[in-house]
């Protein structure tokens, strides 16, 4: 019943036997012990489980690990030394963009994608792009301000 998958996780080649019904988030958390990827709803709405797959944010709770064969997956744990993520972390802490920390990994991964993909996003666009990531603590105020700040600061650097 189990199937073999080969994929790259945080730069490592991983080969594993998985039950087809195991979703990617459980595979990352339970098999790979990468518990920074959180489960908030397991039906694709809350965004807490967002990871990067082949360069794009995806929901790891509604993608089955077996179907991710051959992909390149990056979880929050892989961004310790990422320059853009470091910038975001700085802004998130200064703007108080997190409280309990549970939605934060998914939120940061989505925020990083917004900044990389939409360097000219204004506040309403940021909010729209974030609408698939739920936070129950912050009211999004600090999160949106942090993303705006990083976008503005990067623009400033780029224009120098």
């Amino acid at each position: 019943m189990k199937k073999t998958v080969n994929l790259t996780i945080n730069g490592r080649s991983v080969t594993a036997e998985v039950e087809p019904r195991t979703h990617l988030a459980d595979f990352l958390r339970d098999d790979q012990r990468l518990t920074g990827t959180h489960l908030g709803c397991e039906h694709g709405v809350c965004g807490a489980c967002t990871v990067i797959m082949d360069g794009e944010p995806v929901r790891s709770c509604i993608n089955f690990a077996v179907a991710c064969d051959g992909t390149d997956v990056r979880t929050i744990e892989d961004f310790d030394d990422d320059e853009l993520m470091a910038h975001l972390r700085q802004a998130f802490t200064e703007e108080h963009g997190l409280q309990c920390g549970y939605c934060t990994p998914g939120m940061l991964i989505m925020a990083r994608d917004i900044i990389a993909r939409l360097p000219d996003a204004d506040e309403s666009r940021i909010r729209l792009e974030l609408s698939g990531n739920l936070c129950r603590c912050t009211g999004y105020v600090g999160i949106v301000r942090a993303i705006r700040r990083v976008l503005a600061e990067r623009k400033e650097v780029a224009s120098v």
Binding site: T35, G36, R89, T93, G101, Y102, P105
Partner: peptide, 11 residues
């Protein structure tokens, strides 16, 4: 904040 932002919380 640090541990949460690096995915190192412990729930």
């Amino acid at each position: 904040d640090g541990r949460y932002m690096r995915g190192r919380g412990n729930f």
